[in-house]
Write a protein that binds this DNA or RNA. Structure first.
Lengths: 147, 147
DNA sequence: AATCATGTAACTAGTGATGTTACATGAAGG
DNA sequence: CCTTCATGTAACATCACTAGTTACATGATT
């Protein structure tokens, strides 16, 4: 089971918002993501706290992007979500007194730190604008196949 | 919360077994790991199925290593444990019909695949013998400080 | 004032490792 | 043979966390 799909969800939501004129309601986003509107609000609220989106109540309310797509990287979104744990693996005692466990933690910890650094680096290199362009390319491709 | 510390646990257990003469009981290993003996049996059983350790019942029974420490890598142990999920992040729909989600999955999936490949590569390069040597070095260091 | 949408609390569901109890099975020693 | 010791395994509880759901308050627009 995937433990945390929020980064994927907010990316999906943000791209839909980028392609959409005017604010989108939590319910509309929930239909796009096949997710519950309350969960959408809960997750988007973290992006609002980070200054990436804004929400408005009442008629014609909803969510809209207030940041430049070119400057928002996946890493920034990951941070906005509270930097949830990336790895499902780990060790129980962080600072063990046992020398054996220290050796284990050193080896395991280094490999995982390298993998995490690589992932965060990749996240930092991809912006919402990149994804929007990739979507546009896929969209054009499908239209070309049909036409 | 760490979801899966089994790799760390079996490494810890195997190194203790390597430093110990004769088989070690689940209860003794449980004391080393601060874990429940039944959990130890459950986890070590996977290594037994992979041919890395053997178990014996009755008096003077317990667990012992039957593989060459030089040839057992962290990756092989990870495989013996059933290759549990490495990432805590992911997306919900693997093959979405939505083009937006396809673009998201492609970007996210590639970054995560790279990170996973790096981690598995690092795991493949570290053997139990390497860890045993690292432990011996740490042990000598501590004795030097005391003496 | 009615309607619409967010804000948020409170609770449930689902997942997977880990903890725990209980009991069967087999091996060694008296 | 029988007791003891240790694994083998089933069954259930616990824990942590995201996601789903219900309910209601708050604020903005018409």
């Amino acid at each position: 089971m995937i433990r945390d799909s929020r980064l994927s969800s907010v990316l999906h939501a943000l791209l839909h918002m980028a392609e959409h004129d005017g604010p989108m309601t939590s319910e509309a986003l929930g239909r796009c993501l096949a997710a519950n509107p309350v969960v959408v609000r809960r997750t988007m609220g973290l992006l609002r706290d980070a200054g990436l989106v804004a929400s408005e109540r009442g008629h014609a309310g909803g969510w809209r992007i207030v940041a430049d797509l070119e400057t928002v990287s996946l890493r920034r979104l990951h941070e906005a979500l509270g930097e949830p744990a990336i790895h499902a693996l780990g060790h129980r005692h962080e600072t063990p007194s046992c020398l054996v466990e220290q050796a284990v933690n050193a080896a395991l910890g280094q490999a995982m730190a390298e993998a995490e650094a690589l992932l965060l680096d990749r996240f930092a290199q991809v912006t919402l604008a990149d994804l929007a362009r990739d979507f546009a390319r896929r969209h054009a491709e499908v239209r070309a196949q049909k036409g």
